[in-house]
């Protein structure tokens, strides 16, 4: 039975509620941006955090979901629910199809192969004008009309309603991940991370598990893409370029804490809020942002999620001078 970290959920829900009560378009937009990155980083956490595969092409699947949603909404006139159900399946199927081919390699090789997939996807988005609109993108993605259930009205057309949908998706995904990482499936993934060969020697068909992890991340990224498309209501190739998507998701996860439950949320919050609050001359702000990243990586190698553990260690250190450093093995929260 996994220990449930109630405190984390309480703080998160309180923060979500605070943004909702604030209610300004700005706060809600920032809130939704944070949630989009959190969910994408959770998706990345499955192959990267649990399985140890440096997936550098999650932007391709994020873009797949967004363009699928855009195409269905603008060209086929489908409501939000259709792409939200269909695109994750397509994302998973495509991942499952290419997974067995590229998951034979790992390390930097795998990173570069997935980078290539992301780059090719970017070129397709920009050049396949008939479907993607090329650089013109797809405009006119309309959010769902208000739905009335007796006394309760869910109005996803407004930022506040759409924000709540994001909260629900984010919380669901977090709870799912908290459960998933305790399953036998995830245990095998961790086994693959530490020693693929040995895991195979124990009789697990590791390729099947790796493809599973890859497909899960593809499905999550595509779903997040659908949410993004309806959030921003216009899609064009730039947000799915390597620097803007795959790289950003990777940085968020690495800063937040690879493999950890709360890392994606913490990383997404820091990376989204930092440029907003650093009120400096533009390039100085970028430098400061880089310096803060550097500090986090150097001093918190296990990410923001390990901050509590870091403090505890630091507090204990004087009493345990010259003794073994505190074990790094405790699961980061």
């Amino acid at each position: 039975m996994p220990r449930i970290d109630w405190l984390g959920y309480v703080v998160l829900v309180a923060a979500m509620a605070a943004i909702y009560i604030n209610g300004s378009g700005y706060a809600l937009t920032i809130g939704m941006t944070i949630m989009i990155w959190s969910m994408l980083a959770i998706g990345l956490n499955v192959p990267l955090g649990l399985t140890g595969y440096y997936h550098m092409g999650i932007g391709a699947f994020f873009g797949l979901g967004a363009y699928g949603a855009g195409f269905m909404a603008v060209r086929l006139g489908q409501p939000l629910i259709v792409p939200l159900l269909v695109m994750p399946v397509i994302g998973a199927v495509i991942s499952a199809a290419i997974g067995p081919i590229i998951l034979r390699i790992r390390g930097l090789h795998f990173a570069t192969a997935t980078l290539a997939i992301g780059m090719i996807a970017s070129d397709v988005m920009n050049n396949w004008v008939a479907v993607t609109g090329g650089p013109l993108g797809l405009a006119g993605i309309v959010r769902p009309a208000p739905m009335v259930f007796g006394p309760v009205t869910i109005d996803l057309s407004q930022n506040s309603g759409f924000y709540l949908l994001g909260c629900a998706l984010t919380l669901a995904l977090l709870i799912w991940f908290a459960w998933f990482r305790t399953t036998a499936f995830a245990l095998v993934l961790r086994g693959i991370k530490s020693d693929d060969l040995q895991t195979r020697a124990f009789g697990y068909s590791t390729m099947r598990y790796k493809v599973g992890a890859f497909a899960i991340s593809g499905a999550i990224a595509a779903a997040v893409g659908v949410y993004y498309a309806f959030f921003i209501q216009y899609i064009s190739p730039e947000p799915f370029s390597f620097a803007a998507s795959s790289f950003q998701a990777f940085v968020i996860l690495a800063v937040g804490g690879i493999g950890s439950l709360w890392g994606p949320v913490l990383g997404a919050t820091l990376i989204t809020v930092l440029p907003e609050v650093l009120d400096l001359q533009p390039q100085v702000r970028v430098m400061t942002y880089g310096a803060i990243l550097l500090v986090v990586i150097v001093f918190l190698p296990r990410g923001l999620a390990s901050f509590g553990a870091y403090l505890r260690r630091a507090g204990r250190a004087p009493a345990r001078e010259k003794v073994q450093p505190a074990p790094l093995e405790q699961p980061a929260k």
Partner: peptide, 17 residues
């Protein structure tokens, strides 16, 4: 707006706010 679509939307929201 950092040449970033989401940041651009957030910026407009901030100004409107």
């Amino acid at each position: 707006d950092r040449t970033d679509t989401s940041a651009g939307v957030a910026t407009v929201q901030k100004i409107l706010g």
